[in-house]
Design a protein around this nucleic acid. Structure first.
Lengths: 352, 352
DNA sequence: CAGCGGTATGACAACGTTGTCTAAAGACCC
DNA sequence: GGGTCTTTAGACAACGTTGTCATACCGCTG
């Protein structure tokens, strides 16, 4: 049969309550005891019974809330979350939601009303939805948001920052370094803050290189293939043409690639194209896409880890969480990530 | 607060145990009492607490077991499963597993040992793993398998069939109808039965059109981009070249497209390429891929529905499940699916 | 009428965990 | 050195349900 907390206690020679304390990282358990208990847990391959825990009041499901058409992104997030959650004795409930449909709150209400949810992981656009955030705060439900931007110490909740601004700066800087001067930017929907951040990073790099921004080269649109293809078609009709395109994600870039091909514009010789995200298909286009790699699995792992710490802190009445980070996991990832430029075959120096 | 069984009992003026009996349709409760209890349940809008019930024995989670690098496929399956599970009062637990790693059984054992799992949804390659299936049978755990093939009435467990054979036949038939005679087949790993089925469908269609099969044109390999690119490079070096390539999935097809481009072979004018699956990126290549659409969401929904029926049947001691199908869901999907040919831009009549 | 078997109902334990309260041991202050 | 505070650990109840056993009642039979 499955090992219970009492089996662990017996093996470690302590009361079962002490084991409970160790598992939940409650303060005030001697170090030696902690080690004995962890050893016993490992030996018995013990995992807490979620139902029992739920029953007693402590929910142990973490809900992953998302609405993202990019399967690759979602899967990487899921797997990152799963690994961390399981390691910490929580289970993951995936919860795709239709962001546009209006009854987001009602759907969420339904999910939360079961009382099984210990905390939420919010990805854009939900992580930037003030109404939703306010509702969660009011319910005092722990959550972690994954957002675009750089760290803001004033945030009351844990938050994972993806520095789209810097990554976009790096990309644009790289293109300018190759001699490009007419660099177009194909944005996504501006409801997504990442689209805005990427544009700002792009503008900052242009300024750094003394390139004047040209409003005609900054084309708003959507985060998908068709929008990228469409906008590129129009860009290629301009005189003079841009020599490089920075697409706000890989799908837009794939669309750009498609239009370049249709219009018999050679990539990269006549037109360099850069994407953003490093989805698998960025390696499956011709030529292979230069892009910025987003470490989604790590981002997710970090999110889960911060969320769980926050859940525990809110249970134990606050400060506790800061204490164990120095000793237990020095390798605990920080809450800031910066996508890295990956140079492949869709970029080269600007034509003369 | 949420109503409990005791609140119901108090309102109905009976002991809470009697309420439990009524809810679980146990025999030996007087009719008049039953009515009083049901009325109270309705009035309080009472719903049993899943955790408490789990704790005491009855599981209500369904696990989705998979190992598939194709994010798109996984996501569509997940969403199809989720919709059906939630509708029927079950929750979905996703469980990615590394098929090759050998400790599959150990990992699964761990999952099952929690006792929370009411049933499993198995996708290839797990759905074709005899050891795993035997283990589940022995534990008497309900499961549903999603496999490649056509219906086999001898199966003791529910099973969803995807008719890769027929779909591959349709594709090859379509190519032959366009006048192609030298049609290459780029397979995947033969551990996946779908790879084998697709090859057989291909061969059958060739035979139907009186085309001799050419072993040099049937190239085994892997279900990925690089393998497709590599094999296509070799195919294009042949004299005479094939005029069409049937790739066993879209990724292989994307690789083929890539190699054709590198070798300056025009697609589709000089070479037609067909994929299989209709992943999103089949619309994001240039030219857009002709492929076979696999209705993954529907397949998943059907799997969940069959699994839940099977779970209920095994709880109530067998026959029960047949009784409610006629009235409740006449629209219950069948267990056979056949991917449909989608013609896009990567195919055209054979060159003269 | 005593005894028996069957039926309808209730009391209580149990599931595995966490929260609360309390006890023991040591550190610290005057 | 005695009292008080802090740290550490255990005993016990509680969560909402189902399983097991006991009880009360009924109608029979001998």
């Amino acid at each position: 049969m499955k090992a219970t907390i009492k089996d662990v206690a017996k093996l470690a020679g302590v009361s079962f309550k002490t084991v409970s304390r160790v598992i939940n990282r409650e303060p005030s358990v001697g170090e030696e005891l902690q080690e004995r208990v962890w050893a016993a847990i490992k030996e018995l391959n013990y995992q807490p019974n979620i139902s029992a825990r739920q029953l007693r009041g402590a929910a142990s499901f973490i809900a992953f809330i998302y609405d993202n058409p990019n399967s690759h992104y979602v899967i990487e997030m899921q797997h990152g979350l799963l690994a961390e959650c399981r390691a910490q004795g929580y289970e993951l409930l995936i919860h795709p939601l239709a962001a546009g449909s209006g009854d987001t709150m009602a759907d969420l209400e339904q999910l939360l009303s079961t009382g099984h949810i210990a905390g939420l992981v919010l990805t854009p656009p939900f992580s930037e939805n003030p109404e939703l955030i306010a509702a969660l705060r009011e319910r005092k439900l722990p959550f972690v948001r994954i957002v675009s931007g750089s760290s803001d110490p004033a945030e009351p909740e844990p938050c994972i920052y993806v520095d789209d601004y810097q990554a976009a700066f790096d990309i644009t800087d790289y293109l300018a370094g190759l001699g490009h001067r007419r660099i177009a930017f194909l944005g996504g929907e501006d409801i997504h803050r990442s689209s805005v951040e990427r544009r700002h990073g792009y503008l900052a790099a242009l300024a750094e290189h003394g390139i004047d921004e040209d409003p005609a080269l900054i084309v708003p649109g959507e985060f998908n293939f068709d929008s990228g293809a469409d906008r590129t078609r129009r860009l290629l009709a301009m005189q003079p043409r841009p020599t490089a395109i920075f697409a706000a994600n890989d799908e837009i870039a794939a669309g750009a690639l498609f239009s370049a091909r249709i219009n018999q514009v050679a990539v990269p010789q006549e037109l360099s194209i850069v994407g953003f995200e490093d989805s698998p298909f960025s390696r499956q286009t011709w030529p292979k896409l230069t892009t910025a790699h987003q470490p989604n699995g790590d981002i997710a792992g970090s999110a889960a880890s911060h969320l769980i710490a926050s859940i525990r802190a809110s249970r134990n009445g606050s400060a506790a969480s800061h204490q164990d980070s120095p000793d237990s996991d020095a390798s605990l990832p920080d809450n800031g990530f910066r996508p890295q430029l990956v140079v492949r075959d869709s970029t080269c120096p600007a034509p003369q």
